[in-house]
Design a binder for these strands. Structure first.
Lengths: 197, 197, 197, 197
DNA sequence: ATCTAACCGAGACGGTACGTCACGTCTTACA
DNA sequence: TGTAAGACGTGACGTACCGTCTCGGTTAGAT
């Protein structure tokens, strides 16, 4: 991976931060310009103005580069801006942010591309499983709701019930849930979780 | 697509059904043997004992072949076997069948591969949107439940709430929901839908 | 070959003269339009409006078709038009006709193409050796000259000395001998042959 | 062409001389083993143990490779070994060497193949026109003869009269002139050139 | 002020899949 | 039987990208 542990006074020329940033930027650009499938390691190196070997030295696959490029951005873009004191409004706002992220944000497109690649390549699937950028924001929302939802199920199911109905139509049909259905979704979740099982 | 309209007494040698079947079988085999990513048009043709041009004549991409290979099988494997008279049991059984299909069945693996490809290639995404093999079985179950669920939301959301929480963890983390959580998921859905909104 | 022996009351549909002529015409056209190298059996059949199998039934290679198409034309185009009573003028006229045939006439281009193919394919080389369209006209001229040339060498060498200096620059450099050099060539030949060895 | 201008301290990995030599050798071998027509770029690359792209990087066609492979060899093989003081013997020796080269020497076979290809492909024809391997040796012989031949015509015709009668029967009939006719040919040439026009 | 080691760009290397083309054969319906 | 049409298995085409390697050069810490 690109990050890597810092190395103290090692001899030799240090890694070029310019090159690293140029590669990450090139990946972002290419994803928008040509799409994930048409993106190649060769193309990334050329777009970044970087030697091919330099790319291979720090990353193994385009998915790895994309994951690094996307990781920080995702959390920033998904961080619920203002928290309403109304649970339904709070949850609905999160669902809307999630939908917007997945359909419009560059990082969201990258995430969907990675998710797709994860179905083909188990290594990518594993990386995503450990570094799922959707998890932290979702768990933050659920933590706020937990006090008013005594019947909320264990975290994995609660997260799946929250995110799944938003994610699935996007992945399976490339069509997001309508905006009013997001609100209905939030209300139904809270109703189900409202009473102790 | 491989099917194509029937043609009456056209001149020329007719399409070889042998070749068509051999290609579809080869795709099934290769998906299991080498995985979607390592599957190539060249490899498909060779495994099928068929000319490369013959493959290209009837299909454009490996995704198209896979979609044809999988379409019929999917519905058969997902057809709810026995319908319990208990709604919760009925729904839970469907969710289990769905999980099993997606994690174990060859057609399920193919579906996930296609879903992944759909994130990269909009054409494949469109094909899946129109021929989603999960839709019909799910709507059949929901139709049975509708009488006892006066609060069930519109079909798109109801289907998303049913399938999404099962699908999302599989796609995002390659980890299915635990079996008991499927049961809890079903009960929570029925609770939310039980009372009129 | 296309010609073939006549067959008396054989059963079945007789060979289509239309198809035969269309193929020969197509070969002529294609040679001019796209050149020999780009000419294919498939293209010939399509240009002739004829089934591919029909071409293969009567000819094996494009060279064979071309040879049949060219054979008659060649002698006609090379038949010395008017015979001068001056041997030098007679010979020079023949050399000029030969040069014109090889550089300009469609049949001449076809002959050069066949000659080229003969270097690669011994079968074509053999066909040409037996059906050389240049031989008969050349021998006719030499026969007329023989009375005034007591030193003319045996026919193979005489023909080679006559035709070779015209042919070689064309084949090796795609550049014909200049017109006045043709005249000089004729005069030198006659001088060499004029006195008994 | 394979040669190319020398490049000073250019960046990047330099061209592999091993690969270049292997390709030229492979072409020589294949010409003998399978003939020109059956020789393919793919086959050349495989026989040379070289990537296909490497072949295409430096040469466009098999003819180009063959031309490079043959250029040096040709002059060496045709260099008149010993020069007799008798003009007729000198010229006859050259004609015999030429015949042997064209009928037996590997480079001669390659030259004939190129000559054939030149009839189909004008690019090859042009290359041959500029790099005709027969020209230099022939002109060397004619230069030696010129003092004793006051009637020798301009160089293009003299060369054509010398080489043409040897070359033409080989190309048109795949049959060389008989050995004694070569001697006769030389004597007739010298007789024609001996007296001033 | 070297020396050494790791980095950098460029680009050629042996491979392999791409999608297309033509090969020569075959299998139809029709004449 | 001959014919036009057209699909068949085969295999070369020329291109693109793979991941590796080898150049000349650069940039640091260690000597």
């Amino acid at each position: 991976m690109g990050g890597g542990a810092e190395r103290a006074g090692r001899p030799g020329r240090p890694r070029s931060e310019d090159a690293r940033v140029a590669v990450l930027q090139a990946v972002d650009d290419l994803l928008v310009d040509v799409g994930y499938a048409a993106m190649t390691m060769k193309g990334i190196a050329e777009r970044a103005g970087v030697g091919r070997q330099t790319v291979y030295r720090w990353w193994s696959t385009k998915a790895e580069i994309l994951l690094e490029a996307v990781t920080e951005d995702a959390e920033a873009e998904l961080a619920g801006p203002a928290v309403a004191d109304d649970p339904a409004a709070d949850l609905t706002a999160h669902l809307r942010a999630l939908t917007a992220f997945l359909t419009s944000a560059p990082a969201g497109l990258a995430y969907r591309a990675l998710l797709g690649e994860g179905q083909h390549d188990p290594v990518v699937g594993g990386l995503l499983g450990h570094a799922d950028p959707l998890r932290a924001p979702t768990e933050a929302v659920l933590a706020r709701l937990r006090t008013s939802c005594p019947g909320m199920p264990p975290a994995p199911l609660a997260a799946a019930q929250t995110v799944g109905p938003v994610l699935a139509p996007l992945l399976a049909a490339a069509a997001p849930l309508a905006d009013d259905l997001l609100r209905t979704h939030a209300e139904l979740l809270l109703r189900a979780w409202g009473q102790r099982g």
